[in-house]
C-alpha cells in the first residue's frame, strides 16, 4: 500500500530572537540563547526543521512568597536568601539555559524596595551567572515604571528580556529597553487580538517586531490551562500563516502558576487520595510545561529543580527524533 504523509507547509516563519550578549556584542555573557525560527508546529520536523529547541528558564526571586510550600522551599533552602546564589544554583546544579529574575521586592505591599536596590540585585545576578537574564517587574504599574529604567540601565548592553509590558503599561518599559538594548516581553492574558494590538503599539514606538517575546497567559494545569493552550496554538498558527504581529516566540511562566494550585500545596493528610505531597508540585509544574510545549512555548519558566530536570529530559527526547 502506498501512503503519502501529510506535510503541512506554511507561508510564515517565527522570528528568531537572541537573548544575552557576549563581550564582543557589548555585554558580558559567556553564552547567549536563541529561540524561535520555526517554520512548522512544534516537534514535527517532517513539516519543516525547527532550528531552536525550547529552552528551560528557572525563576529566581528577590523575596520569596511567605506561603511557599515546604516542598518547594526545601530543595532551594540554602539559596533563597540570595538571588545571586539562587541563580548560580539554577545554572550550575540544574542546567538552566536562562535565569528569570523576578523583582518582587519593590512592590509597595512587599518590601517597597527602591529602584537602586532592584538594580543592585540585577547586577549581582548578572555577575553570578554566565547565562542570559529574563527580568520581570513586580506588576505594580507605578512602581515598575520607577524601577524599570534603573534596572535596564544596570544591565545595559546585556540584551536581557524584560517584562511584562501590558496593554495598560508598556511605554516606560519599551523606552527603557530601546535605550539600553534589551528585548521586551509582552503580556496580553488569553486574548489573541489584544496581544496583536499590544505588539503593534510596541513596534510603533520603534522597537522592532523581532525583539518581542509573547506571554499569552497565566494559567496552570487545572486552572485555565485549556485557555492558554488554545491561545498559544492560535497565536502560533497565525504566525505561521504570516501574521508578523503574531510571529514572535512565546514564553510560559509555569512554576509560579503551578505552585499556586491546591494540588501542589495541600498536605497528604488533607488529601490522601492525591498521593505523595512531595511529588504533586513537580508533577503539576511538569504537566503544565508539557502542555504548553506542545502548544508552542519556546521557553518555560520553572521553579523546582526536579521539574527543570524532567523538562530538560523531555525536550531532549522530543527533539532528537527524525521525521515520521
Amino acid at each position: 500500500m502506498s501512503l503519502e504523509l501529510v506535510k503541512e507547509t506554511w507561508p510564515g516563519k517565527i522570528f528568531t530572537i537572541t537573548i544575552g550578549a557576549t563581550a564582543a556584542e557589548g555585554g558580558t555573557r559567556a553564552r547567549t540563547v536563541t529561540l524561535g525560527g520555526h517554520g512548522a508546529l512544534p516537534f514535527l520536523p517532517g513539516d519543516a526543521p525547527s532550528p531552536h529547541p525550547p529552552l528551560v528558564a528557572m525563576e529566581v526571586m528577590d523575596v520569596v512568597p511567605p506561603d511557599w510550600p515546604e516542598h518547594l522551599r526545601a530543595p532551594l533552602a540554602d539559596v533563597l536568601a540570595s538571588p545571586a546564589d539562587w541563580a548560580r544554583k539554577c545554572v550550575e546544579d540544574c542546567g538552566a539555559d536562562l535565569v528569570c529574575l523576578r523583582l518582587q521586592a519593590p512592590h509597595p505591599e512587599w518590601k517597597d524596595a527602591s529602584p537602586d536596590e532592584a538594580a543592585a540585585t540585577v547586577r549581582a545576578v548578572l555577575q553570578a551567572v554566565p547565562v542570559p537574564l529574563i527580568i520581570l517587574g513586580c506588576g505594580h504599574a507605578d512602581k515598575d515604571n520607577e524601577v524599570w529604567p534603573r534596572v535596564t540601565e544596570a544591565a545595559r548592553g546585556e540584551r536581557c528580556l524584560v517584562g511584562m509590558a501590558v496593554p495598560e503599561n508598556y511605554k516606560t518599559l519599551v523606552v527603557a529597553c530601546l535605550a539600553d538594548g534589551h528585548n521586551v516581553l509582552a503580556e496580553a492574558p488569553i486574548d489573541v487580538n489584544i496581544q496583536k494590538q499590544l505588539n503593534i503599539l510596541i513596534t510603533e514606538m520603534g522597537l522592532s517586531a523581532d525583539r518581542i517575546v509573547l506571554h499569552p497567559g497565566n494559567a496552570s494545569l487545572g486552572y485555565g490551562l485549556e485557555y492558554e493552550y488554545s491561545i498559544m496554538e492560535r497565536i502560533r498558527l497565525a504566525g505561521l500563516q504570516g501574521d508578523r504581529m503574531l510571529s514572535q516566540p512565546m514564553l510560559a511562566v509555569v512554576g509560579e502558576e503551578a505552585w499556586k494550585a491546591k494540588e501542589a500545596r495541600l498536605p497528604e493528610g488533607a488529601m490522601p487520595a492525591w498521593g505523595a505531597e512531595a511529588l504533586r508540585g513537580p508533577a503539576w509544574e511538569a504537566a503544565t510545561a508539557a502542555a504548553f510545549l506542545q502548544a508552542g512555548a519556546d521557553m518555560v519558566v520553572l521553579v523546582h529543580p526536579e521539574t527543570a530536570a524532567t523538562v530538560r529530559r523531555t525536550i531532549t527526547e522530543l527533539t532528537k527524533g527524525s521525521a515520521a
Binding site: 494545569l221 487545572g222 490551562l225 485549556e226 493552550y229 494540588e263 487520595a273 492525591w274 498521593g275 505523595a276 511529588l279 504533586r280 508533577a283 503539576w284 511538569a286 504537566a287 508539557a290 502542555a291
Partner: peptide, 15 residues
C-alpha cells in the same frame, strides 16, 4: 502513582 494519575486526568479534563 496517585499523583501521576491526578495530573493526567486533570490534563485530560482541561484539553
Amino acid at each position: 502513582e496517585p499523583w501521576q494519575a491526578l495530573a493526567l486526568v486533570t490534563a485530560r479534563q482541561n484539553i
